[in-house]
Amino acid sequence: MQIRVDDLSGEKVRQLIMDHLKNMELHSPPESRHALSVDGLRGPKITFWSAWEEEELLGCGALKELDRNHGEIKSMKTATAHLRKGVSKTILQHIIMVAQDRGYRRLSLETGSMDAFMPARKLYESQGFQYCPPFSDYKKDPNSLFMTKEI
């Protein structure tokens, strides 16, 4: 698997992000959706990665700098054909390593509280993330759970 910084210009990557957003529509009310659009992922404080095997897109993930010590994981998504193959775990471990290299002391994330998000929560738990109160600009929301990890 090759993980590379991506400018979100490729059709496969844009489609994966659109699939991610559609999935959020199925499971989260509008006021509880915090997934970023393609344009949002191009923000100046965000690094976006895609994971590939040759020409096959496996998944993606992003890291948003909240401040010089704190990063937020965004847009973790595995392509449907590659679920349960360790793609998200590999991307997450890559993001954690980059965050450590940048000198961040903490990584945090927001995810859904519904059953559909259980696999994601289990992944984050397996990598040492713990539940926490809302961080940054997030507000308490029954449809959201917040997790953090000191690195």
Score class of each variant (00 low, 15 high):
E25I: 05
N69K: 15
D67P: 04
R102Q: 11
S136G: 13
P29Y: 10
R42C: 15
H27W: 11
L36E: 06
F135A: 00
G128Y: 05
R106D: 01
K89T: 10
S88W: 04
S9V: 11
K45T: 15
R106A: 01
V98A: 06
K140V: 14
S37H: 03
K85I: 05
W49M: 04
D141S: 08
G71Y: 00
G71N: 01
S108E: 05
L16E: 00
G103I: 04
T111D: 01
I46E: 06
N23M: 14
S126F: 09
F117G: 04
H82Y: 15
Y104L: 09
E125Q: 15
L92R: 09
S108Y: 00
S136N: 14
N69G: 11
M1A: 12
K77Y: 13
E56L: 12
L123D: 01
F117P: 05
L92N: 01
S9G: 10
I73N: 00
K22W: 09
R105V: 12
M118D: 13
Y104W: 12
Q130F: 04
K64P: 02
S108K: 00
R121K: 13
G10H: 10
P134F: 10
S75G: 07
Q15E: 15
P134M: 09
I46S: 03
S9R: 13
H70G: 03
P119K: 00
L145I: 14
E55D: 13
P30H: 07
L41Y: 03
T111E: 00
S136H: 15
T80W: 03
K12P: 01
M1V: 10
M97H: 15
R4H: 11
F48S: 13
H70M: 07
H94K: 06
A51K: 00
S9H: 08
T111M: 08
E56M: 09
D101T: 10
F117N: 07
G43D: 11
H27S: 12
G86H: 04
L58S: 04
M76Q: 02
S113G: 09
I96S: 03
P30R: 01
G59P: 00
L8E: 02
L92Q: 02
F146I: 08
K122I: 15
N143T: 02
R84E: 14
S136A: 15
A79S: 11
D19F: 11
F129M: 07
P29I: 06
P142S: 08
A81L: 12
L26S: 12
S88G: 12
T80G: 07
M76V: 15
H70S: 08
K85P: 11
M114R: 14
R84G: 08
L36W: 09
Q93A: 08
G61T: 02
W52T: 00
S32R: 10
I46N: 01
S136F: 13
F135E: 03
G61W: 05
D115G: 02
Q93E: 11
H82V: 01
M76H: 05
V38K: 06
K89L: 13
L123M: 06
